[in-house]
Amino acid sequence: MALVLHVTGARPNFPKAAPVLEGLTAYDVEQLLVHTGQHYDDKMSDIFFRQLGIPKPDVNLGVGSGAHGAQTAKVMEALEQLFTDRRPDLVVVYGDVNSTVAAALVASKMGITFAHVEAGLRSFDMTMPEEINRLVTDRLSDLLLTTSVDAIAHLGNEGTDPDKIHFVGNPMIDTLLKNKDRFDSAAAREEVGLEGDYIVATLHRPGNVDDPDDVAELVAAMHAVADQAQVVIPLHPRGRARLEEAGFLDHPKMRVIDPLGYLEFMGLVRGASAVVTDSGGVQEETTILGVPCLTLRPNTERPVTITHGTNQLVTRESLPERVREVLATGPLTEWDTPPLWDGHAGERIARILARSVGVARRGEG
């Protein structure tokens, strides 16, 4: 029986992997789920497996945090031994985290076929570690599974063999749609202690929080946002120090909370008047939920969320005025959604993966 090995490592990977794991249960394959431990505390990883019904990982490499090079090297070393021991027929990687590119490098060097779920996304910003991970992973991939038409175009412009490219839709949206009825905005509001309009923020990119001048500008912009509505920002304790030192919390309507589980966070987002983010996945989730998303970055690798969604790029200078406009407009009643973001991407991906290893659906011989 063919062995399909899935490599996950960080919070964004888990809702992408869940529909693929489920889709492949219909085929005559053995599956091995590997968690590298890049995100290793409960709210960043374990709770996702429980809430999304993902089987407990068969292998947890426990690499932990660290500098990009050191972390990638640890994952590569551990995966090389695992691939040698188990010799999978196919490796599946997700997204653009360090675990993704580590698995791509090891599989490629060992001659193991591998597939990249969420291939072809480009920000064209080489200061982003994720952009480097995307480029390297896609260059080496045997199967490139894309979420949007622009991703197909990027791969074509890079000279990728079109036979390797498959437009499948977005498996993370499968997870969102499957669990949408469990997103309890009222419970999330009560848990955090929110009344009236509120805005959710997720901010962690180096371009916003590493340089002291950038942090000072961010604090001023977010305080101007908090002048208009309550702001709640889930933030890991290890990431708070720099923002606290810059006075981020010195506003009565600024609320910092610990990271939330998937269901709790999505409940919070669903009830928000707007989201301010520099995250990739949040741009996609708000696009489906119809929540205005203000992406505090000069670029996005997910432009489909702007052309077919609720997202817009903003600067620190323009953020307060954009928030004012969003609050004045009120909740959206109609918005576009991207093609094939329909809840069936996992099934399409599973069909392609099964075909690549030459297996049929269970019961079909």
Rank of each mutant, 00 (worst) to 15 (best):
T127W: 02
R182Q: 13
S141I: 02
G159K: 11
L140A: 08
M126K: 15
T160R: 12
E130F: 00
D163K: 14
H166G: 04
V168L: 07
R139K: 12
P129W: 01
H154P: 06
S148T: 15
N179V: 08
D142V: 06
T147F: 11
R139G: 10
P129H: 07
A153T: 14
E131W: 04
R134P: 01
M128A: 07
L176A: 04
P129A: 08
T137Y: 01
M172R: 02
V136K: 03
L176P: 00
K164N: 11
T147K: 11
T175C: 09
L177E: 03
M128T: 01
L145E: 00
D174N: 10
L140T: 06
G159S: 09
T175A: 11
T175M: 08
L135A: 10
A151M: 07
L143G: 00
G159F: 07
I152N: 10
V136Q: 04
V136N: 04
V149E: 15
T137A: 04
K164P: 05
K178I: 09
S148Y: 08
L155R: 00
D181P: 05
H154C: 09
N179W: 05
E131N: 05
D161W: 13
T137W: 00
I173R: 02
D181Q: 15
I152Y: 01
P162Y: 13
D138K: 00
D181C: 12
E131Y: 06
A151N: 08
I173M: 10
K178T: 11
R139C: 10
D161E: 13
T175E: 06
D163Y: 12
L155Q: 02
T147L: 15
P129M: 08
K178M: 14
K164E: 10
N133H: 09
I165C: 05
A151E: 02
F183V: 00
D138T: 04
M128Y: 03
V149P: 04
A153F: 13
I165F: 06
P171G: 05
M128H: 02
I132W: 07
T137K: 01
D161A: 06
G156A: 12
R134V: 05
L144E: 00
E131R: 01
F183Q: 00
T175G: 05
L177T: 03
E158T: 10
T137P: 03
I173F: 06
E158S: 12
T160I: 14
H154V: 15
D142R: 11
P129R: 08
R134K: 08
N170D: 13
G156V: 07
L145T: 01
L176T: 01
D181Y: 07
P171W: 09
L143M: 10
L140F: 11
M128V: 03
K180R: 14
E131H: 05
T175S: 12
K180C: 10
L176K: 01
N157R: 11
L144W: 00
H154M: 09
F167Y: 15
L143P: 00
R182S: 15
M172E: 04
R134W: 03
H154K: 09
P162M: 09
E158P: 08
V149W: 12
L135E: 05
A153L: 14
L145C: 05
D174P: 08
T127M: 08
S141M: 05
M126F: 11
K164Y: 09
S148C: 15
E130L: 03
V149L: 12
L144T: 04
K164D: 10
R134M: 04
N133K: 07
